[in-house]
């Protein structure tokens, strides 16, 4: 088992993760925050990140959230990548917290979709 250091640029959060956990699992297992946690299955898109430096292994991710171009530009889902070196990353995904978002008077068509 190899361990790597992950740095989240937005928050300067730093945590250690092993190559046995996805980057998202590694963060969540330590009770750390920074990347939004959703389905952990590559389907919902809330954990979208951009890897700024470092290498990783990846698995299939939903094209609803990661385009081919995203994937080539290292914009990926944190729940579908495993670090193979130290990583620096930027968080892109968002969790929507407001209940009334999406109500007709709040502009139903413009509510932000994660990723």
């Amino acid at each position: 088992m190899a361990n790597f250091t992950v740095t989240i640029e937005n928050t300067n959060e730093v945590f250690r993760t092993s190559d046995r956990n996805t980057v998202l699992e590694g963060m969540a297992a330590l009770g750390r925050k920074g990347i939004p946690v959703g389905c952990s299955g590559g389907g919902c898109g809330v954990c979208k990140i951009e890897v700024l430096s470092g290498t990783y292994r990846k698995r299939v991710m939903s094209r609803a959230h990661i385009s081919v171009e995203d994937e080539e530009s290292h914009r990926v889902l944190a729940c579908r990548i495993w670090a193979t070196s130290d990583l620096r990353l930027k968080v892109i995904g968002k969790i929507q917290r407001s209940v009334s978002r999406g109500a007709p008077e709040a502009g139903a068509a413009q509510s932000p979709m994660p990723g």
Binding site: G43, C44, K94, P114
Partner: peptide, 11 residues
Amino acid sequence: KLNDAFLSVVT
């Protein structure tokens, strides 16, 4: 209380 995922994590 709602958890963060309730309103925003869907597929």
